[in-house]
Every structure is written in C-alpha cells, then in structure tokens.
C-alpha cells in the first residue's frame, strides 16, 4: 500500500500513477503533477475531434485515472485519490499512441457522435456483435478506432468500437459481451 501522505515529498522524483486507486485528472496541463497523465481538457477535446461528441456531454462528469492510462468518467465528485474497486464507467485507454475508447463508453455516449461512425447493415452488425472481423471496403473515412453503429427502433445506435485497417473492420467487442444475434 502507498501512504498518500508521502506522495511527492521525498526529494526530486515526481509522483507516479498508482494502480490501486483513482486519481482525478488535472483540468489542464498547467495543473499536471503526474507525468504522462492526460488532462481533462485533452480528454474532452479528443472525443470532440475524433467523433464530434460535444464537450457539453461531459459537463457533469469528473475524469479519473486508475491503472496505467485507464480513464474513468464519474457522474459526481469525490475525494482524490480514492481507493475503491471502481468509480463510474471506464471510458478510454490512454498513454499509448492511439487512444482507445471502451465499448461501454461508446454505447453510452456514442449516440452524440457525428464523425468516424461506421453504419452497418443487419448482417454486418450481427457479425460485429459476434466479435468477428469483416471486409468493409466501402468505408472511406479515417483508419483507426471507429464507432460501429446500426439502425434500431427508428434511430442509429452505437454497437461498439471497431478498428478499421486496410479495408477490414475488426470488432473489439469484449468476449463477455459477444453475442450471436442472428
């Protein structure tokens, strides 16, 4: 266990991320103490730039890091750091070249997305939900992590996160969530 009272006081080494607790993200780079930790501003901006999700979507949420680069959105505010099992919803994996959104985040917040949304027909959506990769040459948008969506009950609904590369859409639906819906 780390004693929070000793953080950052023992000499020259900067504080590090502690995988056993949640730390609130700094609002901006000027307030950053833990090297490499993303800021709230960067996270909000990332969702907007990559998917067109408006910053106002996150107005009521605080952002937290637990584990290296794993970010969580929480509906209120609590003390930081906080040693609990989970805090809100895991939304994003950062501290890597391409940030990766979680299936849960995309299902909950992805309806507001306007960019990098790949709309699938019934058969394609069923393949995606089973966790299968598929050829999808018609997509002419960005490569990388996209939101796979389909039409259901008079609306477009996000299914999960796809990785689009070389004409192929890979499903990243976690094993425990994969389902045969055909």
């Amino acid at each position: 266990m780390t004693d929070p009272n000793t953080d950052g006081v023992d000499g020259d080494s900067p504080p590090e991320n502690d995988g056993h607790r949640f730390d609130r993200l700094p609002a901006t780079a000027a307030e950053r103490e833990v090297p490499g930790r993303p800021t709230r501003a960067e996270v909000v901006q990332w969702w907007e730039q990559r998917y067109g999700i408006p910053p106002a979507t996150w107005e009521e949420h605080t952002f937290w890091e637990k584990g290296n680069g794993k970010l969580w959105a929480f509906a209120a505010d609590v003390v930081s750091p906080i040693p609990v099992e989970s805090l809100g919803l895991r939304i994003l994996r950062t501290r890597q070249e391409h940030w990766k959104p979680s299936t849960d985040a995309v299902q909950r917040f992805g309806r507001a997305a306007t960019e990098n949304v790949v709309r699938l027909d019934r058969t394609e959506a069923e393949r995606f939900a089973r966790g299968e990769d598929q050829e999808l040459p018609r997509w002419d948008g960005d490569w990388g992590y996209v939101i796979a969506a389909h039409e259901i009950a008079d609306g477009v609904e996000p299914i999960g996160v796809g990785l689009y590369l070389h004409g192929e859409l890979r499903s990243t639906v976690p094993k425990g969530r994969q389902e045969d819906l055909s």
């Binding site: 949420h61 099992e85 809100g88 919803l89 895991r90 969530r177």
Partner: peptide, 19 residues
Amino acid sequence: LSALRHNAERLGITNLVVT
C-alpha cells in the same frame, strides 16, 4: 463484485462507486 461491475458497465452507469 465482478458481476456487479459487469452489469453496471453494460447498462452504462456512471454514478456508481464500487467498494
């Protein structure tokens, strides 16, 4: 607890703290 977390995640809940 892992079942609780899995269910809360699938339902998109963001106001839950699990202890």
